[in-house]
Amino acid sequence: MLRKNTKLSVYVVFLIIILAFAICYKLFIEDEVLAVVEGEEIRRSQMDDFLQVLKLYNPNMDEMLKDKKEKYNIEHQYLDFLIFNILINNEVNKLELEITEEAMDAFLEDTRSYFIDDVYEDEETYQQRFEELEITDAQMEELAYSEVAKQLLFEHIQQGITDEDVRSYADENPMLLIQEAGYVKASHILVETEDEAWDAYRRLTEGNEDFETLAKEISKDSSVEENGGYLGEVYADDINWDQAFLEGAFALEPGEISEPVKTFFGWHIIKAGEKKETIYYNFEEVKELVRAVKEQEAFNEYLEELWKNADPEITL
């Protein structure tokens, strides 16, 4: 009898161990590590908490997350967001920038007002949704901390941008100064190599060959048979055009032919037709707009450098 009870006890203990292992394994899988950033883990539970908060911002998030493909895209997008939060928080600590309770309280109050006024239309509906999602004060405070840290880092970078930097940035990006975009009715011949481009240029300028005829003969543009290389009105503020092509086209007077111009697509010979000049703002008129664009670009580049140096390990 004693031997039988002993066997039963061993069996029960074995079952308990197996059950405990299964529970631990399930918890481990459910709270898997999605990324490691500068030694800090981002776990599934953190992603789930973050998505709960996002549901406050977007009432349609529940439906979106039911679609597997949509959920995959959302999780990968916001994993990047969580990684950047860690990088920014760590950088703010390194720079010894102070995150005050007043700043966090102000963010939380602004966020609450935004939800009530712009998302849910009244406080009762907002509060009901807040409780329904079981969002905690700690989750909102974590969001506030990260957003205040982001603003502090942005302001830190702002301070390093001088008036000379803004002026240089405007010179490098003339599109920012455009008040009324001009255009040039342009044609082009596209070839693969610089030698081919110079050969085409000489045939046009020294051999006086017809531009449209030569375009149909040698251009690699797939539409050349239909349009003879004619591109229509090319506008100075059209970001779909390669900047080098725009500069080459607008440097010409009507009837002129450019020397070879290198772009992402290859080498071009450009011919200008009718042209309308671009009207530009005076720099001082748009200085603050240019500054804002420059500051945002500098901030983005700073974050890219943080990411590059940290080299996060992503397992999602």
Rank of each mutant, 00 (worst) to 15 (best):
E70I: 05
Y72W: 07
N73I: 11
N73R: 12
N73D: 08
I74K: 13
E75P: 11
Q77H: 13
Q77T: 11
Q77R: 11
Q77W: 13
Y78C: 14
D80N: 15
F81K: 13
F81G: 12
F84N: 13
N85M: 07
E91A: 02
E91T: 04
E91F: 03
V92C: 09
L95H: 09
L95V: 05
L97Q: 11
L97M: 06
E101Y: 06
E102T: 08
A103W: 01
A103E: 00
A103N: 02
D105W: 12
L108M: 00
R112S: 10
S113H: 09
I116D: 02
D117K: 14
D118Y: 14
V119K: 12
Y120T: 11
E121N: 13
E124N: 11
E124F: 15
T125P: 15
Q128Y: 15
E131R: 14
E132H: 05
L133C: 01
L133E: 00
I135P: 01
T136D: 00
T136W: 00
D137M: 01
D137H: 10
A138N: 14
M140H: 05
E141A: 01
E141C: 03
L143Y: 14
L143D: 09
A144Y: 00
A144C: 01
A144D: 00
A144N: 01
S146Y: 04
E147A: 08
K150L: 08
K150Q: 14
Q151R: 15
L152N: 10
L152D: 09
L153V: 04
E155F: 11
Q158W: 07
Q158T: 06
T162M: 04
T162C: 03
D163A: 07
D165K: 03
R167Y: 11
S168C: 06
